[in-house]
Structures are given as C-alpha cells and as structure tokens.
Design a protein around this nucleic acid. Sequence first.
DNA 1: CAAATTAGGAAATGAACATTCCCTAATTAC
DNA 2: GTAATTAGGGAATGTTCATTTCCTAATTTG
Lengths: 200, 200
Amino acid sequence: MPPEPRAVRGRPRAFNEAEVLDQAIALFSAGGFAAVSIADLVAVTGLSAGSLYKAYRDKEGIFAGALDRYIAERDRRLGDIAAGAPGGRARITALLRLYAGLSQGEAGQRGCLVVSGITGLDQLGATAAVLRATLARRHAMLAALVAEGQRDGSIATTEPPEGVADLLLALLQGMRVVGKGGRFPEDGEGFVRRALRLLD
Amino acid sequence: MPPEPRAVRGRPRAFNEAEVLDQAIALFSAGGFAAVSIADLVAVTGLSAGSLYKAYRDKEGIFAGALDRYIAERDRRLGDIAAGAPGGRARITALLRLYAGLSQGEAGQRGCLVVSGITGLDQLGATAAVLRATLARRHAMLAALVAEGQRDGSIATTEPPEGVADLLLALLQGMRVVGKGGRFPEDGEGFVRRALRLLD
DNA sequence: CAAATTAGGAAATGAACATTCCCTAATTAC
DNA sequence: GTAATTAGGGAATGTTCATTTCCTAATTTG
C-alpha cells in the first residue's frame, strides 16, 4: 500500500528529498549543528538558500528533517538486525557488530548525528526532545533484548534488564565518540566478544 | 619549588587566567567549538575581545588553553583516584565512580570538553592532535590498570589489557554522551557494579 | 484557458561573527 | 627618569551568517 502517486496543488518538488537529507546528515554528523552553515548546505545540495528555507522553514528545520531520516533509517536497520538473529544474546551481538562497523576507520570519523546532536543539545529547540526520545527508545529496545535473552536462557546475568541496557547504551554511544576520534580498534570482533561479558 | 614570583618585562596580566579558562571550559563543554562566539567569551569572562586575542592569539587558541587546563585537571584527578585505591580492580572501580558522578544530573548536562571537542574535530587545526592524544593516553592508562589487576589477581579476565581498555574507554566517553542527554541513571553504583563484569 | 497554489532561485538585508588597530596603562631595564 | 615592553580595551573592519523578499516557473482546479 504505497501512498497515492500524488495529487497536491502547485508546482511539485524538483529535488530528491532523500538525497538532500542524506547530504545534510553527512554535514551535521561530521560537525554538529552549529558548525554547518546554510552556505555549506547550499554547496553540497546544489539547492538555493531560498529553496531550502521554503522546504524546511529554517536551519533547525533542516536539521530536524535530517535527524528524522537518520533515526528512521537507523531504527529500521536495528530492527532488521535484531529480527534476523535468533535469541536475545545473538541479537545484541549483531547490534554491537553493526556499531563496531559504524565506528571503525573512515566511517567512524564521519561521525554520528545523534552524538553530535546531543553535544549541541542546547542550541536546539523542539528538536532536542527528539534526540532525548531517541536515547530513551534505544534504551528501551536494549532492555527488551536483554529481558528476552534472560527468558530464553542466552543471557545469564540476573541484573535488571534496564540496568544492563544503561551500560549497553553508553557503550554504543561511546564507540561512536572513540570512532570519531579515529581510535576505534581494528579488531571489531574482539571488541564485541569482550563487550558480551556484560551479559554474563 | 614554586616558580620564581616573576620577572617578566612589561605590564603584568591583570586577569585570573585559571578563572577565565574555567569559564571557557564551561562554554565549550556545553556547546562545542563552533557554538561558542567571542562575544560569548567576552560576556562570561568580562575581558575585552582585544585582551582575549592578545593572550590567546585566536579562537582556537582560547579553546586550546581551555583544553590544556581541562586535561591537566582531569588527569590529575584520575591519577589521584587511581593512586588512592588498592589494586587494579579497585582503581578502575574508583574511576568509573568518578565518571558516573560527572555524568549524572545537571553536571552531566553541562557536557564534557573532550567529547564536544572530538565531535568538532574537523573544525580544529593543531588542537585536534591534542584531543586524539588524550584518547590515546586515557586508553594507555586504562590498559595499565587492567594489566595491574591481572597481575595482582583482582581482575580475572585473560583478555589482553588493551582490548579491555578499548571497552572501558568507549564506556567512559559514552557515559558522558548519555549524561549530556540527561539520561544517565540515578543509580550510579549499580551502573558501576554492572560495568565491572567487563573485568571478569 | 484562467485562477490558485506551490516550488526554485537570485539578490537583498541586517545581525553576528572573528579578527585587527590603536591608543592608553603598568611594569621592567638601564 | 626614560626607553622598552607587554597588557587592556574600545572601536573599527571586512566577512560570513541566517533569513527574507520578490520574481519566475510548474503544476492542479475549475
């Protein structure tokens, strides 16, 4: 059930919104909200400032659009990965592997929109709540996976799932910070294996 | 052996450098390099722009001065804490407790200069190397503590100390990110206790 | 085909920005 | 006491910034 082809009045958008938002994601991830200027966005998107403002209202609107897309894409990928592995422990393992890949080498140095967004939280208005909610949602997801693993016997710890999720959440965000600094280890598998001790 | 009172030519500095740098640390920690303007620094320090430029050459110089002070202070505190606890495991425990305190509540939301600096790494010139070196130094310190714990029997894991240090480093930086988002748990002791599983 | 509506973009606007200039003040060297 | 040197700060400088304005283009509605 894809939405109707379209039937909105007026001249249609000529730019590819997904592409533009991906370019914005790259810029904001690398430098944070304050470090990106409208001129930068104009340069990478090829759009004019006027068009950007018509489409997104202001700079925070562009950031918010980029963040929504980033989060949707990341949530989708997290969901797929979790669904594709059997049992709580395997799901968390797959998730750690994903983040290890995102944190390594050049990819890692491109940064994370959630981390740079949180760093610049004070500069954001309504969008700050989206970032906080994202942390909360990730935490809930991790806690659910831990609880699942405790039920299915793949996770031995008797600590409360929310407490273990606190650790995993911090670890995942920290991997991105270290990765941005270019210091995430090459041996991602070893990192993941050692991290799993948190579940024992 | 404190340095000679002084014997430099010319008019002496009238402002308290430690105080000014602490104010700069607060600003840059909260928002990152790009989010802080010279006007902001003028406002909180009470100095004029001209004086700031005479003392620190440019905006990155102010950031670099703040970062040096921040790192020196943090390293001193880490060293004290590590020295004050008996054995590798207890030292790492104390260190995790320190970071839990830094990440909680309002203090956590004030941010971390290292994290916000790394987020804005691309905007920094020579100072970027200082930040990367800081990550490397913290990693080395953690690895040394793990190795010590393995020797004294307080740390059971047979994983390489550097590998365990990778985890601890990411965890510590991630605690600050989650703390900036206002989502670090109130039960810091529980967090620390569960984190110590990484050493078993 | 005309009216209404929305998008695109070039140029203008005014504020904020980092940085420099220049004059005055305080100190040391001789 | 005079020269040399460094700090402090007010005001200027030229740039970059986010945002708006306004005109043109493409589409739907009737």
